[in-house]
Computed example of a mutant assay.
Amino acid sequence: MPGGGFCKLPNGSVVVALSLPSPAADGSTVRVLVHAANRARALTRLRNLGLRAVYLRGNAQPPTPDEITAVLHHPDGLLWRRNPERDEELWHPIRTLLGRPRPVY
């Protein structure tokens, strides 16, 4: 069920939502949300994190209003959730999916 889509916001920025195969290789998917200035920048943000083979073809699964709200209220603008169909699961920062440590300030 990999796929994705985008939504252009009134301020000109976009929210891109992608359903990708889970890194756990268990046949499940993860839903990734990215807020960026444009679609190309959103995909570049993911590629810079190591997700090299990420492409957005079409707009079959655009982000829902709840997904847009979630990503806009997160400081990083990058979220993921394991089961896109289950609304009970909370959104997680992208660093928890990729195993990156939290920066210390």
Rank of each mutant, 00 (worst) to 15 (best):
P2L: 04
G4T: 08
G4A: 04
G5N: 09
F6W: 15
C7F: 10
C7I: 03
L9Q: 12
P10Y: 03
S13G: 02
S13N: 13
V14C: 06
V15W: 06
V16Y: 04
A17H: 03
A17F: 00
L20T: 02
P21S: 01
P23E: 00
A25T: 00
G27L: 00
S28F: 01
T29L: 11
V30E: 02
V30A: 01
V34C: 12
A36E: 08
A37Y: 06
N38D: 15
N38K: 10
A42S: 12
T44G: 06
L49Y: 13
R52W: 11
R52N: 13
V54Y: 04
V54L: 02
Y55L: 07
R57P: 01
R57C: 06
G58A: 03
A60R: 14
P63Q: 13
T64A: 14
D66F: 13
I68D: 03
A70Q: 08
V71Y: 06
V71H: 07
V71S: 07
H73W: 05
P75Q: 05
P75G: 01
W80I: 02
R81Y: 04
P84C: 06
R86E: 12
D87G: 10
L90W: 06
H92G: 00
R95V: 05
L98W: 05
L98M: 04
L98S: 03
R100A: 12
Y105T: 07
